[in-house]
Design a protein around this nucleic acid. Structure first.
Lengths: 225, 225
DNA sequence: GATTTAACTGAATCGCCGTTCAGTTGAGTT
DNA sequence: AACTCAACTGAACGGCGATTCAGTTAAATC
C-alpha cells in the first residue's frame, strides 16, 4: 500500500468516484465502493474529503472541468471556426456510449436541491456557452456564417413579437449586441444537445447516434446560415 | 381519521408523493414525510405500496399520466392543428414555475439505473410523441404546413448525407413514410423542449420563460414550414 | 537515526429510515 | 347485534452506511 501525496490521492479518488457514478449511479453510491475501487479504506476517502456530499460535489466539478479542458483544446485549433465548432459539438454529444452522459443527468438531479452542485453546474454551463459563443463570433467575423435573425426575434419581448427590426448599426442589431446573440445561439444549441442526449438514453431504439449527429448539423446550419 | 377505500387512499398517497418529490426531491424522500403530509402513519403507505421503490415508480407513472391526460384533451380540440400543437407544447413547457419540471429531471435520474422507472419514462415519451406526431400529420393533411425535408435528410445514413432525395411518391419521400417523418419531427421538438427546460432551471438569469416560448415557436416554424 | 508530520487503517459508533408485526377500529353484511 | 374484512396505527426491529477515533506506518526533516 504505497502512500501518495494528498493532491495525487485526491485526484485518484475523484476519478474513482466519477467512474462509480457512471457505472452504478449517484443513487446507490457508497463511499465504501469508491474506496474499494482503489483498494483503500473508506476512512481515507472521508479523511480527504470530510464528507460524502463534498466528495460528490468535487467529483462533478472534476468531471466537468475535464470535459471543458478538452473542449477548449478543440476550440483553440487552427481550422476554420465552423469546423472547430463542429468538433466541439461532436465532443459534447455522446458519440459512442451514453455512459459518460449519465453522470450529467444524475448531476442535474443532484443540483435541483443542492445549491453547491447547482452553482457548479451553472458555472460549467456558462463556460460551455462562452466557448461556443466565442467560436460563433469568430465565424461571424471571418464571415463563414452569420447569426440568423431568428435568434434575435426572441429578445426581451414577452409575448408581442413585433416586426420592429430596424435601427441596427454595425455590431448591433435589433437592440442586442452580436455577443449576446451569439450567447443565445449557444444556449439554444446546448439545449438541443442536452435534449437529444436524453432521447438517446431513454429511447435508443427510435434514434441512433448517427441520426442525432445529423439533426445537430441541420440545427446548427439553420442557426448560422 | 376517516377511512377511505384503497383506491382513493392510493390516489391521495400518490399525489402526496409527487408533491413531496417536487418540493424536496427524490434524494431526500422519506415515506414518513409522505405519510405526514396526509396525517397518516408510515405503515399505511407501505401497506398500500409494499415498498418505497414501488411507491416512487407508481408516483412517476401517476404524474406522467396526469400530464398526458391534459395534453390529449388539448390535442383533441377543434381548433386548427397548428394552434392545438402550440397549446400542447405550451402545456409541456414550464410556463410558470419550474417546480413541476424538477420531478422529471429526478425521474430521468432514477430511470438511469432502474429498469422499471426507465420503461415507464420510455412509454410516457412515446405517448407524447404519438400525440405530437398525430397533430403534425393532421396539419400536413390539412395543408396547414408541410414537414421540412431537412428532417428527412437525417434518415438511416450514418455519415454520408448524399443528395439522393429522388423517388418519392405520394405519402412517402426520401424512403421514409410521412408518419415516420412526423415522429422524428416530434422527437426533435420534444428534445428541444427538454433541453430548454434544463436551461431554465440551471440558468434562470440568462433565459426567461418568455424568450424560451419564442425560441420554441421559431423552432417549430422551422420544422414545419 | 531520531523526530515530526501526514497518509492511512480497522474497528466501533450512531443515527436514520424502511419495513414488520401484533393488534385496533371502522364500515359494511347478514 | 354478532361477524368479517380491510384500513389503519404504534412501537419495535434491523440493517445499512457515513462518520469517528485511536492508533499505525511511511516518508520527509533535521
Amino acid at each position: 500500500m504505497p502512500r501518495k501525496s494528498a493532491s495525487v490521492r485526491r485526484e485518484e479518488i475523484l476519478a474513482a468516484t466519477v467512474e462509480e457514478i457512471e457505472s452504478t449511479g449517484l443513487r446507490t453510491l457508497r463511499v465504501a465502493d469508491v474506496a474499494a475501487r482503489l483498494g483503500l479504506s473508506p476512512s481515507l476517502v472521508i479523511y480527504h474529503f470530510v464528507t460524502k456530499e463534498a466528495l460528490v460535489a468535487a467529483a462533478f466539478a472534476h468531471a466537468g472541468e475535464n470535459d471543458l479542458y478538452r473542449a477548449r483544446r478543440l476550440a483553440a485549433g487552427r481550422k476554420s471556426a465552423r469546423k472547430r465548432l463542429s468538433d466541439v459539438l461532436r465532443w459534447y454529444m455522446p458519440t459512442g456510449s451514453t455512459r459518460s452522459w449519465k453522470i450529467w443527468i444524475d448531476g442535474w438531479s443532484a443540483g435541483l436541491f443542492d445549491d453547491g452542485v447547482r452553482s457548479t453546474f451553472a458555472a460549467l454551463d456558462r463556460e460551455w456557452k462562452t466557448i461556443l459563443a466565442g467560436l460563433i463570433v469568430e465565424g461571424l467575423e471571418a464571415e463563414e456564417f452569420r447569426c440568423s435573425e431568428a435568434g434575435d426575434l426572441a429578445g426581451e419581448a414577452s409575448g408581442e413579437t413585433s416586426g420592429d427590426t430596424s435601427g441596427g448599426g454595425a455590431g448591433e442589431f435589433a437592440g442586442a449586441t452580436i455577443a449576446e446573440a451569439a450567447e443565445d445561439c449557444a444556449t439554444r444549441i446546448l439545449a438541443y444537445l442536452d435534449g437529444l442526449a436524453i432521447q438517446l438514453i431513454f429511447n435508443p431504439e427510435s434514434v441512433t447516434p448517427a441520426t442525432l449527429a445529423n439533426w445537430v448539423d441541420v440545427f446548427v446550419a439553420r442557426e448560422l446560415d
